[in-house]
Design a protein around this nucleic acid. Sequence first.
DNA 1: GCGTAAAGTCTACACCGTAGAGAAGGTGTC
DNA 2: GACACCTTCTCTACGGTGTAGACTTTACGC
Lengths: 234, 234
Amino acid sequence: MTSTKHAPKAAPPRKARLSREVVLAAALELVDAEGVDALTMRRLGQELGRDPMSLYRYAANRAALLDGVTETVLEELTVFADDVDWQSQLRRMAHDLRRVALRHPNVVPLLVTRPLSTPLGLRPLAALRPLEQILDLLIKEGFAPADALHVYRAYYGFLYGHILNELQEYIVDPDENEAILRLGLHRLPANEFPRLRALGPVLADYNGETELDQGLSILLSGLAAQLARPHQNP
Amino acid sequence: MTSTKHAPKAAPPRKARLSREVVLAAALELVDAEGVDALTMRRLGQELGRDPMSLYRYAANRAALLDGVTETVLEELTVFADDVDWQSQLRRMAHDLRRVALRHPNVVPLLVTRPLSTPLGLRPLAALRPLEQILDLLIKEGFAPADALHVYRAYYGFLYGHILNELQEYIVDPDENEAILRLGLHRLPANEFPRLRALGPVLADYNGETELDQGLSILLSGLAAQLARPHQNP
DNA sequence: GCGTAAAGTCTACACCGTAGAGAAGGTGTC
DNA sequence: GACACCTTCTCTACGGTGTAGACTTTACGC
């Protein structure tokens, strides 16, 4: 037994200087691996080989830590600035967000939930950037600013909704998926849920990507029909 | 002073028999009034004038209690069974859900978040009823079952997204709203967020109901254009 | 009255976020 | 070297949490 100051409790791997980035990265890793509930100050401290209290240097409290995690995830979004038409641009950004969400499913609850407690104006920049981006895109395309805002809202609303939907249907093991589904549906009272029970097999195979794409087609064609007379139509 | 067994600590109002309904109602009241975090076993017990442990007769644990609360809220949805066309039916149901969400804003995070941990087949009946309802509606209208499912997904995705959006923009005091907004926008780097900063006044007045309605119009007209050729496609 | 099952309570434990005081470590000036 | 200073990190402690397990009280059929 070596004689360090006092016996190391777990496995403090290194003693490099901490930083907000390091802390947030470790926090994200923890959330990805074990869910939001696993992210406690004590646990994260242990993961970093530090006293839990040292974290307060880099985040005011646990809530701020969670906000930091969502911000980190949002920064994974790629910034597109292409000259393709606005519809395919929106498509690309949607798929991009979807991919990020699937990469960090445990963060999604934070993603949709944390902003509820922060007025729009006070959100982290990373959260506002997509909004600015889309507004810019649409206005350049000829939409009136107010219309661009409406479009953004419909679009982003749909997008968030889709991601929530998809994660709800998402189950890790597809084999188990069908079994659970069958089992679950079987439990439903036959007279009250005839449609759902009949849909069993169709429900089982779900492709989020094409589902998103189809939804976007619906939305975009609706947009075109409703108000795609940007000022004057070409 | 009457001589009860031992001095009542706070204000145990009565000693009627508990029941799951009573417990859930009290839990919902607490969440509505003070948010999800305020719903602790001890606090709820106190609210009911009972030992916290007695709650475990009516919910397996705190998580189950939260699920119960969302279920209770979903049961507030009115069941429409009218003969109007499917589009206005979908509109009605959307506004109904929106109203319920606004009545219980603190429950919305649970509403969108809890199902993430429960496979579709195992959700409470109240959560599946709208799905069944809409499937039935659409299939009766001539949609192929699989198409009905797609429509449902696009529709509900959009709806949930809208509700999240609206609650994010929702601020209690509209006067303060504009102030905060201005303040917040002012903070944004002018060169990075020109569009957003320019939209200040437009952002400030937000009408969720018409916003939802417009979004639905977009979606529904898109639906009509995309696949409103029920059964066989021309 | 009595027996039994349900409903409610008490105690205790491990864990949580975090306030506040202090120790350790790095860096600049003489 | 010595000293002062500021940042980073650690220690200790407090009041709160969910809930396991054993206990007591209540309700009710006979």
